Simulated scan of single mutants.
Amino acid sequence: MVSRINQVTFDARDGYALCQFWKQVTGYVENPEFPNSPEEEENYIGPGGGQPGLLFIDVPEGKTVKNRLHLDISPDTTRDEEVERLLALGATLYEDHRREDGSGWVTLLDPEGNEFCVERSDAERAAAKS
C-alpha cells in the first residue's frame, strides 16, 4: 500500500490573496463546487485529473522562519522570462543561483514570504545537452 499526495497546504495570513497569486503562477483553477472567496478560511486550486493541488488556510500568525518544504517550478517559457513574469505578479527576488553556462535556478518569495525556486524549462535543459 502507498499514499498519494492530495495537496500541498500553505498557512497564510490572507489565504485568498495568496491563492490568487499562485493561480496566476501555475494556471491551476478552483473547484467550481467550492468557489474561493476572501470570506473562506480555506481556498484551493488544482490542475484537476487527480493531481495534487494547493490549499491555502488562513492562520493568525505570519511566517517567521525559512520554509522546510518549498516548490520548484519549471516554466513553459524560459527560466529568465518566467522570473520576470513572477516578479511582475508580486514575487520578490530572494537568491539568484543562475550560472554563466545557463544552468542554475532563482529563488523567489511569494507575497507572504514563502520561498520557491524557478528552474530551467525542459526545452532549456534539452538544449544544454545538445
Rank of each mutant, 00 (worst) to 15 (best):
Ser3Leu: 14
Gln7Glu: 13
Val8Ala: 14
Thr9His: 03
Thr9Phe: 03
Phe10Met: 03
Ala12Pro: 02
Arg13Val: 12
Asp14Met: 04
Tyr16Lys: 02
Ala17Leu: 06
Ala17Asn: 06
Phe21Cys: 03
Trp22Arg: 01
Gly27Ser: 04
Gly27Cys: 03
Val29Met: 11
Val29Asp: 11
Val29Ala: 15
Val29Thr: 14
Glu30Pro: 05
Glu30Ser: 13
Asn31Tyr: 07
Glu33Met: 10
Asn36Thr: 11
Ser37Cys: 06
Glu39Met: 00
Glu42Gln: 08
Tyr44Cys: 10
Gly50Ser: 09
Gly50Leu: 08
Pro52Gln: 01
Leu55Asn: 08
Phe56Asn: 00
Val59Gly: 13
Pro60Ser: 12
Glu61Trp: 12
Lys63Gly: 11
Lys63Phe: 12
Asn67Ala: 15
Arg68Ile: 07
His70Cys: 05
Ile73Asp: 03
Ile73Tyr: 07
Ser74Trp: 07
Pro75Ile: 07
Thr77Pro: 01
Asp80Thr: 11
Glu84Gln: 14
Leu87Ser: 07
Leu87Trp: 05
Ala88Met: 08
Leu89Gln: 04
Ala91Cys: 08
Thr92Phe: 04
Leu93Met: 15
Glu95Ser: 11
Asp96Val: 04
Asp96Gln: 06
His97Val: 00
His97Ile: 00
Arg98Glu: 08
Glu100Val: 09
Asp101Thr: 09
Thr107Ser: 10
Leu108Cys: 06
Leu109Gln: 12
Asp110Ser: 07
Asp110Met: 09
Arg120Ala: 14
Arg120Glu: 11
Ser121Tyr: 11
Glu124Ala: 11
Arg125Asp: 10
Ala126Ile: 13
Ala128Leu: 14
Ala128Cys: 07
Lys129Arg: 14
